[in-house]
Design a protein around this nucleic acid. Sequence first.
DNA 1: CTAAATCATTGAAAAAGTCAATTGTCGTTG
DNA 2: CAACGACAATTGACTTTTTCAATGATTTAG
Lengths: 157, 157
Amino acid sequence: MDHMAVQTRDGTDQRFWNTSVSGDLAFLLARANSLSLAGANAALAQEGLKVRSYSVLALAASDERPTQRELSEFLRLDPSQIVALVDGLQRRGWVSREPDPQDRRVNVVVATDAGRAACERAHARVTEHQRGHFDMLTDDERALLTSLMRRLAGVAE
Amino acid sequence: MDHMAVQTRDGTDQRFWNTSVSGDLAFLLARANSLSLAGANAALAQEGLKVRSYSVLALAASDERPTQRELSEFLRLDPSQIVALVDGLQRRGWVSREPDPQDRRVNVVVATDAGRAACERAHARVTEHQRGHFDMLTDDERALLTSLMRRLAGVAE
DNA sequence: CTAAATCATTGAAAAAGTCAATTGTCGTTG
DNA sequence: CAACGACAATTGACTTTTTCAATGATTTAG
C-alpha cells in the first residue's frame, strides 16, 4: 500500500518544490498523473484489474462496439498489447471477440454481462478511491479542470 | 437492421470520447500527460536527455543538494532507478556524487558546470516546446491550471 | 557493545513498450 | 476471375522500465 512517512517538520521534499520543476506544468502533470494512476491501480486491484485492462473493459462495455484496432488507436497502445489485454479479459469471461460479419478481418470487443457487472464494480471502486484524490477541489474547480484537461488531452470539441 | 456506426474509418476515435472515460479526470490526466511527456522527451532528445534524466539533472543543478534517497522520494522512483540515472549523468560528466561528510552512507548529487550548462540548454528546449504545447490555453487559464495542478500534485502551499 | 535501521548498490524477475514477420481477409484492377 | 496491395489481428523477438529482494557500509538506538 501507500507509505506516506513524508510529512514531518521541515518536509524533506518540501524544499524541492522551490526548484524550477515546480512551475513546470509538464512536471506537475506527470506527478498528478502518477498519484492518480497509483490510486486507481490500487483500487482496481481489488477487482483484479489495472488501469489498462479497465480501460479496455469500459470501452467494451460501452455501446460503441470498438474493434481492436480502434482500441489500439484510442488508447495509444500497440496492437499486440491490445491482444494481450483482450486475452486476459476474455479468459475471465468479461469480454468476447465478435467477428464483424461485414469485415471478417476485424474483431469487435464487447463486454459480457459478467464483464459489465465487473466494470460497474470497478468503476465504483475507482471513483470512490479517487474521490479522495480530487475532492480537494470544489465542484466548480473540478469542472473547470476537466474542461481544460479535455483540451490538453486533444479531445475534439 | 444494419447499424452504420462502423464505417468511421476516418474520424476514428472521435466517438469514444462520448463514453464514460471522457468525463474521467484520471483518464484525461493520463492522456494529457502522455502527450506532454512524448513532446518533452522529443525536445530533450536533442540534448541526449529524457524527462527522467532531465529531472535528476535539474534537481542536481539546484541549490538543494539532493541525496539519492531524496531524489527517489521526490520523483517517486525506485532507488535503483536513481542509481542508473545518476550513473548515466555522471558518465557524461554532468553530475557528481559527493559523499556527505556528516553521513557517509549518503551521496549528494550535484551538477558540474557542464551539467548546469546542459541543464540550461535542455530547459530552453523543453520550455520552447511547451510554449507550443500549452498555448492552446490563455495565460489566465494556464495560471489557473498550474495552481489546480499544484494542489493535485500534492505541493504544500 | 550489540541490534536495528538506513542508504546506495546489485541482480533477478515481471511488466510494458517496440518492431518485424505471418496469416487471413478486403478492395481494386487488369 | 485472379492477382495485387492494403489492412486487422496475431505471434515472436527484443529492449526498456518497473519492482523487489538481498548485500555491504554506516548510522542510530538500546
